[in-house]
């Protein structure tokens, strides 16, 4: 009797492992995708790509707290035995860290033809599409139209002491934004700005999503976040206003431009299913996906001719910050120790 029970238990264990062992004999048309694009937006796109082609997608998503870097670091940790075919990055900078390490295989997708040359690598290592921007999300109950901040420099203004928020610059798109400031302003000015933020008691939130939550709930008057977070706040009916900062309408002091960040698709070297990976990238770079990302996630299409919903600001209507993404990537790695010290970790 006891032996029977043991056999039954072992059979159950074997069955349970077998049920979770789909990937042991994974299909040839199955692509594994790691992404730092929010799951709420990226998962429906993967489902769309599955339905659009003979493709199956196994996906792995980033958490909000380690956004953009958790998955990236897993790709680096898995470098000796790559598990993923595609990395869909939420920003255009982190893929350079993979390119530098030789973890990317060049791929020029036929669907990249309509995309501007400035948003794709000449050697085919990365291709940008569906972009976000860094914006100020302002609580309209707490801040009048006249007092609305127009520049990221306002985060350091004494009149907003303790009433502003940014996400932890060690993680997510805030890292890229800070690195972009270092690239454009130079180290001294950027460090001085960040130190002024600290003196001005800016709240360091765990993530951009939390910045949105703090602004929506009135914990702070305004904060620096991404357009998709801002869109979620607007869609939820929150009393907020979205400001594309530094558009030059206030004179020289705010002519920096708004930081624009395309999402980026890269084919990973040595992935288990390169052909399926290419197929997935073709789907991601299609005009239809750009349209879907505009509708669901307020991402700005980079190619012309894609309908932009009313709630999405077209790229052509924004004064964009002029940055070299490769340079920003190098700066990001260089300033990491200083940023950790600034955060206190």
């Amino acid at each position: 009797m006891t032996d029977d029970r043991v056999c039954l238990a072992l059979a159950c264990v074997a069955l349970a492992f077998a049920s979770g062992c789909d990937s042991c004999d994974s299909q040839a048309n199955e692509a594994t995708a790691y992404t730092s694009v929010d799951q709420v937006f990226s998962e429906p796109i993967f489902r769309h790509c599955e339905e659009a082609g003979d493709l199956s997608v196994r996906s792995l998503f980033d958490t909000e707290e380690t956004k953009s870097t958790g998955v990236l670091n897993r790709l680096i940790a898995e470098a000796d035995h790559p598990q993923a075919d595609v990395f869909w990055s939420g920003d255009p900078v982190r893929p350079f860290l993979l390119v530098e390490r030789g973890l990317v295989a060049p791929y020029r997708s036929p669907n990249a033809e309509g995309l501007p040359g400035a948003f794709q690598a000449s050697d085919g290592t990365w291709t940008g599409f569906a972009a976000r921007a860094r914006v100020l999300l302002v609580n309209s109950d707490l801040v009048s139209e006249a007092d609305t901040p127009r520049s990221i420099r306002d985060l350091a203004e004494a009149r907003w002491r303790g009433q502003t928020a940014i996400a932890n610059p060690l993680f997510g798109t805030t890292t890229m934004h800070v690195a972009a400031l270092f690239s454009v302003w130079g180290d001294d000015e950027a460090k001085a700005f960040l130190n002024r933020l600290r003196e001005n008691e800016v709240r360091i939130a765990a993530s951009n999503g939390e910045v949105k939550r703090l602004v929506v709930s009135g914990e702070v008057a305004f904060g620096l976040t991404d357009t998709d977070d801002a869109h979620e706040a607007l869609a939820g009916g929150a009393p907020v206003r979205v400001v594309y900062p530094d558009q030059g309408d206030q004179g020289e002091q705010d002519d920096l431009g708004t930081l624009v960040m395309p999402t980026v698709a890269v084919l990973l070297a040595g992935g288990p299913h390169p052909e399926a990976g290419r197929q997935l990238i073709d789907c991601l770079l299609s005009a239809e996906v750009e349209g879907r990302m505009a509708t669901s996630a307020a991402h700005m299409p980079l190619r012309a001719g894609v309908d932009v919903p009313e709630h999405v600001t077209a790229l052509s209507n924004i004064e964009a910050m002029e940055v070299d993404y490769a340079s920003v990537a190098r700066t990001m790695e260089r300033i990491d120790p200083w940023l950790r010290e600034w955060v206190g970790l």
């Binding site: 979770g20 709420v40 792995l60 909000e64 897993r74 598990q83 979620e232 939820g236």
Partner: peptide, 25 residues
């Protein structure tokens, strides 16, 4: 588990945590 879960096999707390980013409240 959030550091090493296999693609497509995320446990429920991980899914909550990853969806928390911009997922509808």
């Amino acid at each position: 588990v959030v550091v090493f879960y296999p693609p497509g096999l995320e446990p429920l707390p991980v899914r909550i945590f990853t969806l928390e980013a911009n997922g509808p409240g």
